[in-house]
Design a protein around this nucleic acid. Structure first.
Length: 821
RNA sequence: GCGCGGGUGGCGAAAUUGGCAGACGCGCCAGACUUAGGAUCUGGUGGGGCAACCCAUGGGGGUUCAAAUCCCCCCUCGCGCACCA
């Protein structure tokens, strides 16, 4: 053999070219093999190039995809680019270069980087969300939403980022700031296209039961959707004939409602306010309107104003004052609440401050109150607040409602029934989830394919005129008026109504950058189709995605949105599965050296190209998998790479310098080999890739001891390592005389019989303390174990003069002798 | 406040139907080979003690022959949500 030196700089390009030319990783539409659709989140092709975080996810699923191919599956492992977005647009504003050009350049760089890492993507299926052939169908799906009444235009207060000059979805506002730029966000009322994701709130929760997502992902989605069950209850406003509906999760606490609070934005505030209170109420409302969401939540002390109006409590006819306060949000429930000061900490705080009555109607659970350190007497006297469990008291009227003595579930049910019978309320469900603000007032996005006609209203662009292409513009700058830069291109905006032919105007808003990624997993299945978004037969074959890995940061954005789109398409009969992803896992972040987030400003960014250039792709891939548990964040450690580098070079020497023997392996070699096949195979399935690599290191340590290398061990080992370090393994596979790629070589099987030892070292403990180690035959009985242990000289010495009380034998592990004293 | 994760050597970490804590790797120490070593190989490496032994998985209690692992209380770090009625 001539290849004495391990030279990744020759090996890696060689095999990358081979895979490209031979289309080694092409997925076949339809096949007798078992299909496996393996997906990673496609990147935004930023000008900075690939981040070392991308390969963490990509390598892990590449390992899985490669293993599945060796297990004779038909694997779809695609890649694409999510290219609409602000950075390209901002770059265009700065330089005047069209985003299309920048995007094309960035995609070229990303493609080269991804290929240099040896990922087994099916490159024949690549596309960018900015390809007109792709966004044609994004627009088409939008029209489907419109046709089904799930896309609607509405003037509503939205989150407006002052520096990006763009409206944001709720999900894009983090801590009151713009998720992207960290700038201030204010409320503005603008006409917006909305997608009715709330119509799917229940299904988005319930169907989580049918999929295999990490528990924390499910929990976060459920929490975000925020379903709660309660009742809407009508209160009459005294002397006005007006009715105000409140939403409460505890209708059974009506007897404890001592006042009512409306949000300052509530529609009826001004109608019910008394003349004396008008000035105070107006001033409060103006003040509240000026505050941003952030300031409003930062306000710790409760504020509010009395409206002068009284509401009538429907369970007992008592008049209770109506206040306004900004702790009641217009965006949740009905924007009005009944306040039960004795059993809600916020209401209690408010009541104390404004000297409103506190009436206790729940007698605290004694045990619970004790462990919480709450004085029950104080609660009963209205001196402190109890929001825990307990039994209802003071809760009956002469009109057929008596819930005294009941616990929560029963009292809620009974009260709701009573309200419904009397026609003054009914059971209701509420969600924290809001409809999705789907308009953006920027250039670099999919044009929303709608036309406004004065006579016909909003009319979709006819299907045969899709895609609505982004027109060329001279200036990309967003405007302060909230209009898209497209609005100034008058000959593009001017068009005719597809319905009546009259003069009409195009919608100038574009879609948010989450649009393209909401259905891309469907397009990979049939990326070149120009008749429909994807052929139904192919969808039937490939869907759903068997395994999808991505970042936790997308849990309440992309992951939720794309589940919603898929469910909608499923209800339209267009896709075969209600859930798009059968399994979802998540990787931890790759942090900079020292554990801080990588950023240009910290100067701790690691460029993958540098690592690949110095150590090669195989080392880079192995290192990222060895760095720590896959689901936890990990700090980059340049020193740590050398361990992997040594491992591969040691392996190479072992493979090419040893005498390859066909003699049978010894017992220990067999055991290590089969243990390695077993452990690596199992660890890949759970993405415990760090321990898989440890096991492979144990293998090389064992087999490099002598200068002889059994052929069977070598070849099996190359196969299990191949998914991790594909280039070096292809090269070794060739050196070992195989003519074709290892990518489709069969995954090796292990035999249980070789995993067992003939003799096992058994620990002998006395009262739990290790005293001796003895070799015992593997299949030994417990009686025999005990006998051997007690016959041990060391043990006998320890036990002399002591009385044996008990002996515990654990087969294959230990004998524990309990003695007295 | 609510929800979800973590806390183990100098460092990244292993170990879960409870069964020898620290696999594997980094770093460090010693030695070999070498003109040389940021190459390679061999050995060592949780802490204390000369030793027998003792102490160690955030802290405190408990269950058990046996606890990093199970139960109770507490501390701490990270992430997500947050005046959601």
């Amino acid at each position: 053999m001539t290849n004495k030196e391990y030279d990744f700089s020759k090996i890696e390009p060689k095999w990358q070219k081979y895979w490209d030319e031979n289309k080694t990783f092409r997925a076949d539409d339809f096949s007798g093999k078992k299909k496996f659709y393996c997906l990673v989140e496609f990147p935004y092709p930023s000008g900075d190039g690939l981040h070392v975080g991308h390969p963490r996810s990509y390598t892990a699923l590449d390992i899985l995809a490669r293993k599945r191919r060796m297990q004779d599956c038909n694997v779809l492992f695609p890649m694409g680019f999510d290219s609409f977005g602000l950075p390209s647009e901002n770059y265009a504003i700065k330089t005047g270069i069209h985003p299309t050009i920048v995007t094309r350049k960035n995609i070229e760089r990303f493609t080269a980087q991804l290929k240099s890492l040896g990922f087994s993507f099916d490159w024949d299926r690549v596309f960018s969300t900015t390809d007109p052939d792709y966004y044609r169908w994004t627009q088409w799906i939008f029209i489907k939403f419109f046709e089904k009444g799930l896309a609607y235009k509405s003037k509503m207060p939205i989150n407006w980022c002052l520096s990006c000059k763009i409206g944001l979805a709720n999900e894009e506002v983090v801590d009151g700031k713009c998720e992207r730029c960290g700038g201030d966000v204010e409320k503005r009322s603008i006409e917006q296209w909305m997608l009715k994701i709330t119509a799917y709130a229940d299904k988005l929760i319930k169907d989580l039961d049918t999929v295999d997502f990490l528990e924390k992902i499910k929990a976060q989605q459920i929490n975000w959707i925020g379903r709660s069950e309660g009742a809407d209850v009508d209160f009459m406003i005294d002397g006005t004939g007006r009715k105000i509906t409140v939403y409460t999760t505890r209708p059974d606490t009506l007897f404890g409602a001592t006042y009512m609070v409306l949000s300052p934005e509530h529609a009826l505030v001004h109608e019910i306010t008394s003349a004396q209170q008008k000035d105070a109420v107006d001033a409060y409302c103006r003040h509240a309107a000026r505050m941003s969401d952030l300031e409003r939540t930062e306000e710790k002390e409760k504020t509010g104003v009395f409206t002068g109006a009284y509401a009538v409590n429907p369970v007992n006819g008592k008049k209770i004052p109506v206040w306004i306060a900004d702790y009641v949000l217009i965006s949740y429930g009905t924007g009005a609440i009944m306040a039960v000061a004795a059993h809600d900490t916020r209401d209690f705080e408010f009541a104390v401050k404004f000297r409103l009555p506190v009436i206790c109607i729940i007698s605290p659970d004694v045990k619970e109150a004790e462990s919480a350190g709450v004085d029950i007497q104080d609660v009963l006297e209205g001196k402190s607040c109890w929001s825990g469990n307990g039994r209802m008291i003071n809760s009956s009227n002469s009109d057929g409602l008596d819930i005294n003595g009941l616990e929560v579930t029963d009292s809620k049910r009974r009260t709701t029934e009573w309200l419904e019978k009397k026609g003054i309320g009914k059971g209701a469900v509420n969600y924290k989830l809001r409809d999705w603000v789907f308009s953006r007032q920027r250039y670099w996005g999919e044009p929303i394919p709608m036309i406004h006609c004065d006579k016909c209203g909003w009319v979709p662009v006819p299907e045969d005129q899709l895609p609505v292409l982004l027109p060329q513009v001279d200036k990309y700058e967003p405007t302060d008026t909230g209009e898209s830069p497209l609005a100034v291109i008058s000959d593009w905006v001017r068009t005719t109504c597809p319905k009546c032919g009259a003069a009409a105007k195009r919608e100038t808003d574009t879609m948010p950058n989450w649009a393209g990624s909401s259905w891309y997993f469907l397009r990979y299945i049939d990326p070149k189709n120009n008749k429909c978004f994807a052929d139904r037969k192919k969808l039937d074959y490939w869907m759903g995605v068997d395994w999808y890995n991505g970042g936790m940061e997308h849990t309440t954005l992309h992951l939720l949105y794309s589940r919603f789109w898929n469910k909608f398409l499923f209800d339209c009969g267009l896709v075969p599965t209600s859930e798009p992803y059968m399994k979802r896992t998540s990787h931890g972040m790759v942090l900079g050296e020292g554990g801080e987030k990588m950023s240009k400003s910290r100067g701790n960014v690691i460029n993958p190209d540098d690592v690949v250039g110095k150590y090669g792709a195989d080392v880079f891939r192995l290192y990222e998998m060895f760095i720590g548990p896959f689901d936890q964040s990990a700090a980059w450690d340049t020193k740590g790479i050398s361990g992997i580098d040594r491992f591969l070079r040691k392996l190479w020497r072992m493979m090419v310098e040893s005498e390859i023997s066909d003699e049978p392996m010894n017992r220990e070699q067999l055991r290590v080999l089969h243990q390695t096949i077993k452990k690596v195979g199992e660890d890949i399935e759970t993405l415990d890739l760090n321990t898989a690599i440890s096991q492979m290191m144990i293998f090389t340590n064992e087999f490099s001891k002598s200068g002889k290398l059994p052929r069977e061990a070598a070849e099996s080992f190359i196969k299990v390592l191949a998914p991790f370090a594909p280039h070096i393994c292809e090269e070794l596979w060739e050196i070992f005389g195989h003519g074709s790629s290892i990518a489709h070589a069969p995954w090796p099987a292990y035999k249980d019989e070789f995993l067992k030892l003939d003799e096992i070292e058994i620990l002998v403990q006395i009262k739990g303390r290790p005293k001796a180690r003895m070799m015992m035959p593997a299949g030994i009985t417990q009686d025999k174990m005990q006998e051997l242990a007690l016959g041990n000289a060391e043990v006998g010495k320890e036990l002399s003069g002591k009385k044996i009380i008990k002996v515990v034998c654990v087969p294959g592990r230990l004998v524990n002798i309990v003695s007295n004293p």
